[in-house]
């Protein structure tokens, strides 16, 4: 068991599940009508964090820092675009 949790892949999985559970908890409130810009921003931020983990650990970009930084930046910009489109519907 000790060796499992010394492994970065397993830790990545634990984090991904934790982030997914947090997203599900927010979804629970969304189902009950608690919505708004903060809930939307939190949902997109959690998605961004999951994408970062998959890029870094599952796809191995943690070993290629230049590529990781570049793709990370692109996805961050893309998430800001999605957030802007999401918020534009409320104007």
């Amino acid at each position: 068991m000790k060796s499992i949790f010394q492994n970065r892949l397993w830790w990545c999985w634990v984090w991904l599940l934790t982030l997914s559970l947090t997203t599900t908890a927010i979804a629970y409130f969304v189902t009950r009508g608690i919505t708004g810009p903060i809930a939307g921003a939190a949902i997109l931020f959690l998605a961004y964090m999951k994408a970062r983990l998959i890029l870094a650990r599952y796809l191995g970009l943690a070993e290629a820092p230049s590529w990781y930084r570049g793709l990370n930046l692109l996805i961050a910009i893309y998430m800001v675009l999605l957030l802007a489109l999401y918020l534009a519907a409320g104007l």
């Binding site: 997203t23 979804a27 969304v30 939307g40 994408a51 998959i54 599952y58 796809l59 999605l82």
Partner: peptide, 21 residues
């Protein structure tokens, strides 16, 4: 790597389609 791409797409797709409102 192909499989992780499928995974990556889903973590972006799910919140936008299912949760954002």
């Amino acid at each position: 790597a192909f499989w992780h791409m499928v995974d990556l797409i889903w973590v972006l797709l799910f919140p936008v389609i299912y949760l954002l409102r």
